[in-house]
Nucleic acid binder design. Structure first.
Length: 505
RNA sequence: GGUCCCAUCGUCUAUCGGUUAGGACAUCAGGUUUUCAUCCUGAAAAGAGGGGUUCGACUCCCCUUGGGACUACCA
């Protein structure tokens, strides 16, 4: 006999496959994972695909792909050799593969009078609801079928009239439970509807499937979004009807749009895939999400947490109750912070694919696509990009010779002649450089020394000549990346440009 | 309409009856050997309102207001 694992914490993330992972879902998953790890428990993934009308091809595969970038899944579904597979002792973990289980359980409830067959058509239900709304009454099932004679049920079934199974909610005490985040929550039974458990197509509704699976999979803590709080009493009633003890609940606050409504597609990016594609780092995303609604408490002001640290300190008791606006600016800051702290090699490896995606990069010269060159470019970029897809955008002049706007060249009130003279001095100075001295440090030291007090006079035309821009990394760094030959060429072009402009005048 | 949840700077939040109500993002100002970025310093910025309880409430209770979620054969 194996020891009963009554005290073993088991939590689940149970998304429905919509085609992409919602950031709110990612945070729910994160809180589940953190809670599980802290307790030394198990985190499982269950797929709630019980709505055939919303079937999206490959959605489960996509979900699994994204999720595994962030978390290790102990039980559930994963891709092995490109194929979806259930793994773990309580499978299958995909609800559409568990239909008979739900059907049996629903029938069991009917047999025990805890549920009943309802033959009302969708049309009748819809009309009923409309009438109730018109009368400003609570919309709910009127109980037409709740006391059907067994013979009638038999007859209707025989005739093939489509039917659903509804939970029978009877008079009784208020339903009260303790939520880990909200404390005691209480609902009156009278406001509860006779919830549909099994749809006419034989698929379970969320309520049935969720309760049956959480019980069968021995889930100890249900950590889910606050939108489920109002249906928790129904779930509790279901556990009771089955004669099961219910798991513990923790309803975490919602993620909000800037206008404080539930975070939605309409008002910005909600798909985790999109954030990843834009170059938000998974670890930055985790850090940011953890802080939306949770903090370590105790007056701590630390804001940067690795996943390991989070697993260490996370605690449901420090989860906030109110919803949190998804603040993109703060995410940007955290992401930039993580990027800056990446070691150069890692940054290079992770940002490179984003450069390869740029259409303009394809037109760059082969010598500018070598790792040697790109590493120099990236060293200029690391402290300047917020998201990885920013890579290269601000420094295209490193790949393509800029067109010089002569008007931009002079520093402050300097004349064209003075500027041209400066550029000549620069050219001469740089020409004398030996190739082996063409390093970042040497260039900086040497140029600053040559410029002396007149830094602006020197560095400004230098920058414009090299970049064509008013804003750029320091010109000696740009020169270092470009190399001696290209640098001298660009300076010469600027000198010529000034001469040409004089002729026109 | 009904049920439930929530309420500290613009945003994320600390505070678990006694604090000059703290931090971070964003904003603004200044500095860091030219611009951008980084970095540093500083500034402005909050307890929705009304009742209680208490020697003392941001903190506990009630009401009001405001916001949100749910109210499908969707999850």
């Amino acid at each position: 006999m194996s020891t009963p694992q009554a005290h073993q914490v088991r939590v689940r993330f149970a998304p429905s496959p919509t085609g992409y992972l919602h950031v709110g879902g990612l945070r729910t998953a994160l809180y589940n994972v953190l809670f599980a790890r802290k307790q030394g428990g198990t985190f499982l993934l269950r797929i709630e695909d019980t709505d055939r009308n919303r079937f999206v091809p490959d959605a489960v595969e996509k979900l699994v792909d994204v999720l595994r970038i962030f978390f290790h899944i102990d039980e559930g579904v994963e891709k092995r050799e490109g194929k979806l597979e259930n793994f773990g002792p309580f499978g299958p973990y995909i609800q559409s593969e568990r239909l008979p289980i739900y059907q049996e359980h629903a029938e069991m409830l009917v047999k025990n009078q805890k549920a009943y067959r309802c033959f009302c058509s969708s049309e009748r239900l819809e009309k009923l609801r409309e009438e109730q709304e018109a009368r400003k009454e609570p919309t709910r099932y009127d109980g037409k079928c709740c006391n059907l004679h067994p013979d009638d049920v038999k007859r209707l079934m025989k005739e093939g009239v489509s039917s659903v199974i509804r939970l029978r909610i009877e008079e009784g005490n208020d339903i009260t439970f303790t939520d880990h985040i909200r404390g005691t929550v209480s609902f009156s039974r009278r406001t509860l509807d006779d919830q549909i458990l099994l749809k006419s197509d034989g698929f379970p509704t969320y309520h049935l499937a969720n309760v049956v699976d959480d019980h069968l999979m021995e889930i100890t803590h249900v950590i889910r979004g606050e939108e489920w709080l109002p249906s928790t009493p129904k779930h509790l009633l279901l556990y009771e009807a089955f004669g099961w003890s219910a798991p513990e609940f923790a309803h975490i606050p919602l993620l909000l749009n800037p206008d404080r409504s539930k975070l939605s597609k309409r008002q910005g990016d909600v798909s985790v895939e999109e954030y990843l594609e834009k170059g938000y780092l998974p670890e930055a995303l985790m850090n940011f999400m953890a802080l939306l609604g949770w903090n370590p408490g105790g007056g701590a002001t630390k804001e940067i947490f690795s996943m390991e640290e989070l697993e260490e300190v996370f605690d449901l008791s420090h989860v906030h109750k109110g919803g949190a606006i998804f603040d993109r600016k703060k995410l940007d800051w955290i992401n930039a912070h993580y990027i800056k702290h990446l070691d150069a090699t890692t940054f290079f490896e992770r940002a490179l694919p984003f450069l390869h995606e740029k259409a303009w990069f394809q037109d760059a010269h082969d010598s500018q696509k070598t790792p040697e060159f790109l590493k120099k470019v990236f060293s200029l970029e690391q402290e300047r990009v917020t998201i990885l897809s920013d890579i290269g955008e601000r420094v295209r002049f490193l790949f393509f010779r800029p067109i010089i706007d002569v008007a931009l060249l002079p520093w402050k009130k300097n004349s064209n002649e003075e500027t041209q003279e400066t550029l000549r001095i620069l050219k001469e100075h740089l020409s004398s450089f030996e190739e082996k001295n063409w390093t970042r440090a040497t260039l900086e030291t040497s140029l600053l020394e040559r410029a002396g007090e007149r830094r602006g006079d020197f560095l400004w035309p230098f920058r414009v000549a090299l970049t064509g821009e008013k804003q750029s990394p320091p010109p000696f760094e740009v020169a270092w990346v470009l190399g001696k030959e290209e640098t001298l060429l660009r300076i010469e072009e600027a000198i010529v440009a000034i001469s040409d402009s004089k002729k026109v005048l």
